Amino acid sequence: MVHKAKSDQDAAEVFIQLVGDKIRELRTAKGLSQEKLGELSDLNSNYIGQIERGEKSISVYTLKKLSNGFSLSLEELFAKIDPASHTSDLEKITSLIQERPTEEHAKILALLRAALNLKDGTY
């Protein structure tokens, strides 16, 4: 769903709806009913429905409860709600390689190529 905002109030409403949409997507992807997520999160299932419909602005503590219900860390839940604000996998890979001594870079590249060739069946 594409959302656009004209003012801070509009932006807040759009973000609240985005959070609700993402919570619903996560819940359905995990095969959970609102009742089961409520049970796992220690939240009322009616409240879960209000969150998903964008009717409620929720606290960080409620996000923490939801992350527990999804068996995710709060960081993982934030990444699913607002992935653009988090480091991409490519940036993570680059960072990991940069942390290694320079003399290991060629070995890492060779391992990566071998893994990709194995995956593609071109080994």
Rank of each mutant, 00 (worst) to 15 (best):
K22H: 11
A79P: 11
A11T: 04
K119L: 09
S7L: 11
I51Y: 08
L40H: 01
E103Q: 05
A29N: 14
L90R: 09
Y61A: 07
E99K: 14
L96Y: 09
A106F: 02
P101R: 13
G31R: 10
G38F: 00
G54T: 02
E25A: 14
S67I: 04
V19F: 12
F15M: 10
Y47D: 03
S7A: 10
K30L: 01
H3P: 05
S88A: 06
H105M: 02
R100W: 11
L37M: 06
L74I: 15
K92R: 13
F78H: 15
F15W: 02
L43W: 01
L74W: 04
H86I: 03
D82Y: 13
K119A: 04
K65D: 07
E25D: 14
A110W: 13
M1V: 02
G38H: 00
E55H: 04
L40Y: 00
E75R: 10
Q17K: 10
I97V: 07
E103R: 05
K119E: 10
K64E: 03
A84S: 05
E55C: 02
S33N: 05
T28E: 15
Q17C: 03
E25V: 09
N46Q: 07
G38N: 00
G20L: 11
Y123F: 07
R24E: 07
D42Q: 12
E35A: 05
L66S: 11
K56W: 06
N44C: 08
L43T: 00
L116A: 15
L77N: 12
L18S: 07
E35G: 10
R53F: 06
G49C: 15
E75D: 15
S95C: 09
K22V: 02
K64D: 12
M1Y: 08
Q9C: 01
L111C: 06
S88K: 15
A114C: 08
R27C: 05
L18P: 09
E39L: 05
G20T: 00
G38D: 01
T102F: 11
K80F: 15
S73D: 07
I58K: 05
E35S: 06
L40N: 03
L90M: 08
F15V: 05
E99T: 12
E25G: 05
R24M: 13
V19C: 08
E55S: 04
T102G: 03
I93K: 13
D21H: 09
S67T: 03
I51Q: 05
K107T: 01
A106E: 11
G20A: 04
E25N: 12
L77I: 14
S33V: 00
Q17W: 06
D42E: 14
L109D: 06
I93R: 15
D8H: 14
E55G: 06
R100G: 10
G31T: 02
K30N: 10
I23K: 02
P101L: 01
L43D: 01
P83F: 00
E39K: 03
D8C: 02
I58Q: 12
L32V: 10
I23A: 02
H105W: 12
D82E: 13
R53S: 06
